[in-house]
Computed example of a mutant assay.
Amino acid sequence: MKKVGLFFGTFNPIHIGHLAIANHMAEFSDLDEVWFVITPQSPFKTKQSLLDNHHRHQMVYEAVKEYPKLKPSKIEFDLRQPNYTINTLVHLEEQYGEDYQFCLIMGEDNLKGFHKWKNYETILENYSIYVYPRISSGKVEHSFKDHPKITKIDAPIMEVSSTFIRKAHNAGQNIRPLLPESVWKYMDEMNFYR
């Protein structure tokens, strides 16, 4: 059975922080692979600045193509929107069955609000959660602190954000070092975020 960590996000765009965390999870935990689950629309975010799904998928593909343990996933593209994580997990179980064991990957900042997620108790009962550190995480709900299904991974702290990259790029600032080279080329050729 393959153990797969699901790293959810809009990846608008994917950047070196995403890549470093996913690679760390794949190399330094018991996960066999990490799948970047590209979210068409988060229930907590507006869709205004999102690039089309296929462009974000292409950027993730470009970023991970040389990393055999990292994969892009379009699984949520065909699910009803706005979608919730529990629906994606049910869909993955139906599609992949007994061959895969799925786990969630999230930052400490997301764990802080995890009790607001739809069916979070069901998720916690059936899936493990791998948490990476964030400087700006704030106080985590007490019931999640020493939960047996939640594992804190001592991953690098990456405080780069896609929002920062989009704004800086639009302002004409050089954000190239914050992106995998192939993502930068795609973004630049397509003239995104200007």
Rank of each mutant, 00 (worst) to 15 (best):
K3R: 15
K3W: 00
L6S: 14
F7D: 08
H15Y: 15
H15N: 12
H15L: 12
M25P: 03
M25K: 00
E27A: 09
F28R: 10
S29L: 10
D32N: 15
W35F: 02
V37C: 15
I38P: 05
T39L: 13
P43R: 13
K45Y: 14
K45D: 13
T46Y: 06
K47W: 15
L51G: 09
R56G: 14
H57K: 14
Q58P: 02
Q58T: 07
V60H: 11
V60A: 12
A63R: 00
V64C: 13
E66A: 11
P68V: 05
L70T: 03
L70R: 02
L70V: 04
K71V: 09
P72D: 07
P72N: 08
K74G: 03
F77P: 04
F77Q: 11
D78L: 03
R80S: 05
R80F: 04
Y84T: 01
I86M: 12
N87S: 11
N87T: 07
H91R: 01
H91P: 00
L92N: 06
E94P: 00
E94S: 05
G97I: 00
E98A: 09
E98S: 08
D99P: 00
Y100H: 08
Y100R: 04
C103A: 11
L104E: 02
I105Q: 04
I105K: 03
G107D: 02
K112T: 07
K112S: 04
K116E: 09
K118F: 05
K118M: 06
N119F: 05
E121N: 08
E121T: 08
L124T: 04
S128P: 00
Y130G: 06
V131K: 01
I135S: 07
I135Q: 11
S136K: 15
S137E: 14
G138Y: 00
V140M: 04
V140H: 01
V140A: 02
E141I: 03
H142T: 10
H142K: 10
S143A: 03
S143R: 02
K145H: 10
P148C: 08
P148A: 09
P148K: 09
P148Y: 01
P148W: 00
I150C: 05
K152C: 08
I153R: 05
P156M: 10
I157F: 02
E159A: 15
F164H: 04
A168H: 14
A171V: 02
Q173W: 09
Q173D: 06
Q173G: 01
Q173T: 03
I175F: 11
R176G: 07
P177R: 12
L178P: 06
E181R: 05
V183D: 01
W184H: 13
W184G: 03
K185A: 10
Y186Q: 08
M187I: 14
N191D: 05
Y193V: 00
